[in-house]
């Protein structure tokens, strides 16, 4: 029995991203496809998402021309593939403040957005530092911050302080302080709604880019390998990986990195006419398959 249907929706991709940017230490070892995805959580009368992608109007041309991001499509088109409209989404969990995760908030006019308060307050604090510290603000778009002001004024920005259980039935938020960012957040879906769930998934944002981060290069002798980019400490990244893997009973494939192309080898999926992949992790009772 699954309480929620869960889909990973690709909305753009970099065909050849350097491995060293994703898995610590993989220098001079070529490239891989890096899909850009968000997650849909549907069931229990709820429609929620994890992250919203980037704003093509603001970033699309630069990303396409300079960094080889290809095939961006708007949420209306991407979500339309599973018969969802952006207006129907009521809750969105932002894993961190980078523009490619929270840049598209204006496309979801009726949603409440959850973010760690420390993620915001530490970004603001870091902006008080002198110019030579500007690396600490990488990936932040001032326009996104201004859009977040509007969200807050409308009462649609929920600042979370640490972990929060059952923000929706069976859905928990977990803070990962000083990791990829100041206060990244991962989302656990207990898909049997049980307190000690035997059927849970973790949506980890950029706390892991690929399965190497969670099990190393040799699945028979697993180890945690840090991600390629951390504002905080790699120690915290590794300890968060341990917490995430433990929370799904040790099955690393139930930790879902949205940038991991090999999800298609683990779960049913299909490619849309636009060339984007939909990966179906679970189907709630009565929900039809979209793959």
């Amino acid at each position: 029995m699954s309480a929620y249907s869960l889909w990973v929706m690709e909305y753009a991709a970099v065909p050849d991203y350097p491995q060293s940017g994703l898995i610590y230490g993989m220098h001079n070892q070529g490239t891989r496809k890096l899909p850009y995805c968000y997650v849909v959580i549907k069931g229990q009368g709820q429609l929620a998402m994890v992250d919203v992608g980037y704003n093509h109007k603001a970033h699309g041309e630069v990303l396409a021309n300079t960094y080889g991001v290809r095939g961006w499509h708007p949420p209306r088109e991407v979500l339309g593939e599973i018969d969802i409209q952006p207006e129907d989404v009521s809750n969105i969990f932002i894993t961190h403040c980078h523009f490619d995760h929270m840049g598209n908030i204006e496309d979801f006019p009726n949603a409440r957005f959850y973010i760690q308060e420390r993620e915001l307050s530490k970004w603001v604090w870091s902006m008080s530092l002198e110019r030579r510290f500007r690396w600490l603000m990488l990936g932040i778009d001032p326009a996104d911050i201004m859009r977040a002001v509007d969200l807050a004024r409308q009462g649609r920005l929920v600042c979370v302080d640490g972990d929060r259980e059952s923000v929706l039935p069976g859905v928990d938020l977990h803070a990962a302080f000083d990791t990829h960012t100041w206060a990244s957040m991962y989302v656990t879906v207990r898909n049997d709604l049980a307190t000690n769930s035997q059927n849970s998934f973790v949506f980890c944002g950029d706390l892991a880019y690929g399965y190497e981060n969670l099990r190393g290069h040799d699945p028979k002798d697993p180890e945690y390998i840090p991600i390629g980019l951390a504002t905080g400490s790699q120690f915290n990244v590794i300890m968060t990986a341990e917490a995430m893997v433990k929370s799904v009973g040790g099955d690393v494939h139930r930790v879902i990195p949205p940038h991991e192309e090999r999800l298609k080898d683990l779960y049913p999926s299909r490619i849309t006419k636009a060339g984007l992949r939909i990966t179906e992790l679970a189907l709630a009772d009565g929900e039809k398959s979209w793959v």
């Binding site: 940017g21 490239t31 630069v62 990303l63 500007r134 950029d206 390629g228």
Partner: peptide
């Protein structure tokens, strides 16, 4: 500021140089 960025090259609205997605620079 956005209009200024569009008026001449060399003025980026967002610094992508070391962003998450910035590792794949193709230029």
């Amino acid at each position: 500021l956005e209009r200024a960025a569009d008026a001449l090259p060399g003025f980026e609205k967002v610094s992508y140089a070391r962003a998450c997605c910035g590792g794949g620079r193709v230029q």
